[in-house]
Simulated scan of single mutants.
Amino acid sequence: FILYPLTLIYFIINHLPIEIQLLTGLLNLVIKIHDIIVDIFYSLSRHKWYIPELNEYFLVIALVMILAALVALVHKKFEILTGLMILIYIVVTVLPRANDYRLTMLNVGQGDAILFETNKQHTLLVDTGGKLLEKGEKATHNIARYHILPTLKKRAIKAINYLIITHPHQDHIGELNYLIEKYRIENIILNSASMKSEQLNSLKKQCRNNEIPLYDFREKQNFKLDKAVINLVDVTINASDDLNEHSIVTLITYEKYKMLLMGDATKNNENELLKHFNLKAVDVLKIGHHGSKTSTSEAFIRSITPKISLISVAHKNRYNLPNQETINRLISYHSQVYQTANHGEVTIDFKENMYIKTERK
């Protein structure tokens, strides 16, 4: 809306006497300033600032400070006003942030989305949830809008540092395109061998447009997130026709705690895991394939004996998941079982002990 009038003026000036053409230099300067301003605002638009969820204590302090700031403004005490504004920022955005490492099973219905956070608000999101669309049905992205983004915002998470797509089933990847456009994502990791070329090329183009590095998980199997170590375990069976068996398995280790996220891995993947990796005494297990009988074998649970088992599943889903036999097996090994269908969003804080919080929404 600015460049077109400027271009017209530039054309007119070039057909005026030589003295007037001296204005061209000034016009070029204006255009350069315009470009700089546009670049600045584009850069600012990619940064998020969210106020985390405040308890009653912080709300009272914030309200008192806001009233004091208004009084300072009325009396033109600008030094006091500036100091109060800085204190308000600290009270409502810095102090309320959690100082713990935590894992959250987001309540995305019949799908998976697992969020891991450090005490510095660095994050890993494993899968995005998603809805299988009927023919002619348009995506509303209500899962991301009402179940993923609100949690990210209330926790003042400015960016997703790593986003892992375990495999390209819609209930694991369906919200990815929307999240790319609506949130700052710094890295995306997937099993490229599990994706159709058209789907992969489309994602590559979207990542280029949004300046997001895209990795195959074999290129980035180990990385750190502050004090946590992330291992992407390769037990994929890419020759299988079952995309569930292409799932990336994620092992998160933080101090004495181990979290194992299975995606939709089957018993065949579990056998590979037992055969090639010495995993013992897992603290948290995200159950494979929503508690289906195709996953969570007796040998697997006996070997890793998870203290807490998480099952991401919709209430009264068409697949009748989780399978009761799976639930009974977990209980028989004294694992605490949490389901999004029953408990909603489930958050585990890792302190001296594990603290579990559930939230229906």
Rank of each mutant, 00 (worst) to 15 (best):
Y4R: 01
P5Y: 01
T7M: 01
L26A: 05
H47V: 02
I51V: 14
E53M: 05
E56R: 07
E56S: 15
I61M: 09
A62I: 02
I66F: 09
V71A: 13
I80W: 04
I80L: 13
L81W: 07
L87M: 14
T93R: 06
P96C: 10
R97Q: 15
R102N: 14
Q110E: 14
F116D: 07
K120D: 12
L125F: 07
V126H: 02
T128E: 06
L132Q: 03
K135C: 00
A144W: 00
P150T: 13
K154D: 12
K154E: 15
A156I: 11
A159E: 15
Y162H: 15
I164P: 04
I164M: 03
D171W: 07
I180H: 09
Y183Q: 12
R184K: 12
L190T: 11
S197A: 10
E198K: 12
N201R: 08
L203Y: 02
N209Y: 08
N210E: 12
N210S: 09
L214Q: 10
Y215W: 15
Y215H: 15
R218E: 11
N222Y: 09
F223Y: 15
V229C: 03
E245P: 02
I248T: 08
V249E: 06
M259E: 06
F277A: 01
V282F: 07
D283Q: 03
I287E: 10
H290W: 04
I301Q: 00
T305E: 15
S312F: 01
S312P: 01
S312T: 07
K316N: 13
I327F: 04
N328I: 05
I331W: 00
S332D: 09
Q339N: 12
T340G: 08
T340F: 03
T340H: 04
T347P: 12
F350P: 07
M354S: 01
